[in-house]
Design a protein around this nucleic acid. Structure first.
Length: 856
RNA sequence: GGGCGCAUAGCUCAGCUGGUUAGAGCGCUGCCUUCACACGGCAGAGGUCAGGGGUUCGAGUCCCUUUGCGCCCACCA
């Protein structure tokens, strides 16, 4: 127990208590408890390659408030922290940070060091192992920065329970889960048209797409019917894909083109003969009503290609440039000459050139018509996605299987959503899936697909018969590890083997955070005590990725949900950029704000935002939070200074009606806050606690402080002191989840142990101490005191001014209640003569006569 | 095109299952340097609860509708 300081301050609290919590193991998970006593939280592993911004602090603080509440309420809280460090974001960061580029064809160079001064325009190529080594080096440093921030903001995670998504535990779990998916037929490989990012040269999944409005133009040109007749015009935004055209399509009911259906037409410039088909998806009112199908311009092309059983005429390389070789179907010299003009160009360059060619050939009808239209992008990319055909790994997710989809929708139904309306996003997403989950990526820094393939005597790779590692050997890297039954020198040789070159998408690992954190298969004892978990807190934007994919994996592996509840935080709205960073010239970072306002103040802002509600970034709220923390210091100092000092608080000493009324109000507060917290509504709990605290300071303390100093004798003083101390003890604990630093500080002045391990206040005990208290006593006394203050303020006199006489008029029941607090009112109002008058059906009225001012 | 959310004081937001004169904080104005607190305190001004209709004894709260904003989804030639 510490002394109450002479001059309480918030300065230095963060550093002091952070260190103390670490050395005392205040938040250590005790794994001797069984599942029923444990509350386990599937904390979002932040992407460490990203920048620290207030959005992260916002959500994590809200979760921490819940965690602290559960811990105080007696749950054994399992609160680990992961770092999401694998995947493309880290590769990007490393490329820029070190000025390097991964070239998997290079051999490992043990002496490789990145350039002293990175030249981003001319990155230095390095081998895949060297590149991965740099990624690991960088992420370790990033993770330290994140951990420091989380400690500073006071997250009560158990820092012994950290994991990374590139670490061996995560690699083992994701490879094991993948192999089991494969064994059960839930994972499969397929050669199929795939959305492809030409910058990063990797496939991307449906969940990582976003639409962006882009300028484009309709270009109009015509195909010539082989059997003669009028040319048939089409309109397209992708004229450069003309050499990849495999058919035209119109709606089956479209009279205009009926005669053409079943015939063939030839393309302009290239003279390739293609059939005319019908399909329901062709829209008569779009363009000319008849469209060219290319392999592949967009996802509709893929549907048409599949359903109309069309051939592939591929002209696009994986780097987004047109192939050097013209498609075999272009046979004419003129056609091949035209294609040669396009070969090697990007789609954008090719579009410019083909429009010139069409125009020169007189094939272009009219001027291109400018439009804006939505185009699919990889969410982290800056060039439109193309569609290329490639061999990829998929995990089933209901996108092609109605039964599975229904089962996953049912899982969403069984999950408890906070707030409930967020479930709609899940339903929309699952209901709108149009393909399985593509998990393979043609990248370097990630968990490898744990497979090899036999290479036949003729040198061909047999993808249909993968060589599978046993689970005990995981994690493996098929690019360096040798499969059972083979020698290292057989890699890539006839009769040997070859490793799958791909890695898994980061979500294929992140979707297993409950399994990774809880020690799935690695630590069965821990797993039994923590899984399935209780809570998944996260942002709304990753319901379709992280939340959904986690449900999918758990559904397959365990046959139930990975957690019972999910809380979805809101979004931070940038209030107005003009006011913040720009004009003042300083970008606001979390660290900056934490240092300026203090951790408790920033937490107060975050915890004030209701669950799932978008919130404006508001430094004003942080100032309010800081003021609240300071008030807590001062109010505590004052109450602890009353009377004889504090030993044990004796609830039975609370005898005065107004003191008991205070305890009754306190019991109400505890019930409110507890109910709110139990429903994951931390913001409501904070709001109630704060509102009570201010009236406690302004009114309750003011009313009873004279008596507490002994003006009405020792018993009355003891009653006031006990009631105030009981209130204080309760308030310290109610504030602890929100303002952990200041709450710990004030608690330490008069209590043993950490407030964060203290029991959550018990409403029933307070209720019993309050006995048959009439809440009106406190209510009317407060109202009357406010009126007396008002009279003094209106007269522009000091609150110290003596009141020669005051007459309080109110309803009989209220006057009766006030009579029980008359002495306290007289003293706090400095009232010489107090009259209480019963007036039926009247509202409170106080007539005050002030003492004459002192002569100047 | 479908869906979700939001719209309450100048600003940021409460108002949970409909119930007496609609609340808080910030900001603003005034007063008070009170023996916990000037990193204060006390008090005051300020609102046709987005518009329209309906249910009800009674609607900020429920239903319908219009408008505006944010977000999600959709096959985007």
């Amino acid at each position: 127990m510490a002394e109450v300081p002479e001059k309480p301050t918030l300065d230095g609290l963060e550093a002091r208590w952070q260190e103390r919590w670490a050395s005392d193991g205040t938040y250590r998970f005790d794994r001797t408890h069984d599942r029923a006593a444990v509350f386990s939280i599937d904390t979002p592993p932040p992407t460490v390659s990203g920048s620290l911004h207030m959005g992260s602090v916002f959500g994590y603080v809200q979760t921490d408030c819940i965690a602290r509440f559960r811990r105080m309420r007696g749950d054994q809280v399992f609160y680990p922290m992961g770092w999401d460090d694998n995947g493309l974001p880290t590769e990007r960061r490393v490329e820029l940070y070190y000025g390097v580029r991964c070239d998997p064809s290079l051999p490992h160079d043990p002496a490789f060091e990145p350039p002293e001064t990175p030249d981003r325009k001319r990155p230095v190529p390095c081998s895949r192992p060297n590149f991965v080594e740099l990624c690991l080096r960088r992420t370790v440093e990033d993770e330290q920065v994140f951990e420091a921030l989380w400690r500073q903001v006071g997250l009560s995670v158990d820092w012994d329970l950290t994991y990374t998504t590139i670490g061996p535990k995560a690699q083992r779990a994701s490879q094991r889960a993948f192999l089991r998916n494969l064994a059960r037929g839930e994972a499969y490989a397929a050669e199929a048209p795939t959305l492809w990012d030409v910058t990063d040269q990797t496939a991307v999944a449906q969940a990582e797409l976003e639409d962006r409005e882009q300028p484009g133009a309709y270009h109009r040109y015509a195909f010539r019917p082989v059997g003669g007749g009028d040319p048939v015009a089409i309109e397209t935004t992708r004229p450069e894909l003309l050499p990849a055209c495999v058919a035209l399509v119109c709606h089956p009911d479209d009279e205009r083109y009926r005669a053409l259906v079943g015939t063939t037409v030839t393309s302009p410039l290239f003279g390739v003969e293609v059939p005319v088909h019908t399909h329901e998806l062709a829209q008569p009112d779009k363009g000319t009503g008849i469209a060219m199908i290319c392999t592949f311009g967009d996802l509709t092309d893929v549907i048409w290609w599949r359903e109309l059983d069309l051939p592939v005429r591929n002209i696009l390389e994986r780097n987004g440039r047109l192939r050097a070789e013209a498609p075999a179907e272009i046979t004419s010299d003129a056609g091949r000459a035209a294609y040669a003009e396009l070969a090697g160009k990007t789609t954008k360059q090719a579009q410019v050139r083909i429009v010139e060619l069409l125009s020169e050939a007189g094939e272009l009808q009219g001027e291109p018509r400018a439009i804006t239209h939505p185009v699919k992008f990889y969410e982290r990319g800056d060039r439109p996605l193309e569609i290329v055909t490639s061999r990829q790994w998929y995990i089933r997710n209901g996108g092609r299987d109605a039964d599975l989809r229904t089962a996953l929708l049912d899982r969403g139904e069984a999950l408890h959503w906070h707030p409930g309306f967020m479930k709609t996003r899940y339903d929309n997403w699952v209901g709108g899936l149009n393909g399985d989950w593509l998990i393979s990526r043609q990248r370097f820094f990630g968990v490898a697909i744990p497979l090899w393939y036999p290479v036949g005597a003729d040198g061909t790779v047999d993808h249909a018969a993968p060589i599978i590692s046993d689970e005990a050997s995981l994690p493996i890297d098929p690019s360096s590890d040798v499969p059972p039954g083979f020698r290292a020198d057989q890699r890539g040789e006839a009769g040997g083997f070859i490793g799958d070159p791909d890695i898994m998408d980061t979500w294929a690992t992140s979707s297993l955070t409950p399994q990774i954190a809880c020690g799935w298969e690695d630590d069965p004892d821990l797993f039994d005590r923590t899984f399935p978990m209780d809570l998944r807190p996260q942002g709304p934007e990753i319901i379709r990725t992280w939340l959904f994919s986690t449900v999918v994996r758990s559904h397959f592996e365990h046959g139930h949900l990975p957690w019972t509840d999910t809380s979805i935080n809101g979004w931070i709205l940038d209030p107005d950029r003009k006011k913040m960073s720009k004009s003042k010239g300083n970008v606001v970072t979390p660290v900056d704000l934490l240092e300026r306002h203090g951790s408790d103040a920033v937490r107060y802002w975050a915890a004030s935002a209701r669950p799932g509600t978008d919130t404006a970034f508001d430094e004003g709220q942080m100032k309010v939070g800081r003021r609240l923390a300071i008030k807590l210091l001062n109010a505590t100092k004052f109450v602890l200074g009353l009377g004889e000092g504090v030993t044990d608080i004796d609830p039975a000493a609370v005898t005065q009606p107004i003191d008991r009324a205070l305890l009754a109000r306190l019991a109400d507060l505890v019930e409110d806050a507890t109910d709110a917290f139990a429903g994951y509504d931390y913001a409501r709990a904070l709001e109630r606690t704060e509102a009570f605290f201010w009236t406690f300071c302004d009114d309750a303390v003011e009313l009873v402080k004279g008596r507490a100093y002994g003006s009405l004798g020792p018993e009355a003083a003891a009653s006031a002191a006990a009631a105030l101390q009981l209130s204080l003890s309760t308030l310290h604990r109610l504030f602890a989840p929100f303002l952990p630093f200041v709450a710990e500080e004030v608690w330490s002045w008069w209590q043993e142990g950490s407030v964060h391990r203290a029991p959550w206040p018990d409403a029933a005990a307070l209720r019993s101490a309050a006995g048959d208290a009439d809440p009106l006593v406190l209510e009317v006394a407060t109202a009357a005191l406010t009126e007396v203050r008002r009279a003094k303020t209106t007269a522009t006199r000091s609150l110290r001014t003596e009141v020669t006489s005051a007459e309080v008029r109110d309803r009989p029941d209220r006057i009766a209640a006030l009579r029980l607090a008359a002495d306290d009112l007289r003293e706090s109002g400095r009232i010489a003569s107090l009259d209480l008058v019963e007036v039926p059906d009247s509202a409170l009225e106080v007539v005050v006569e002030l003492a004459a001012p002192e002569p100047a």
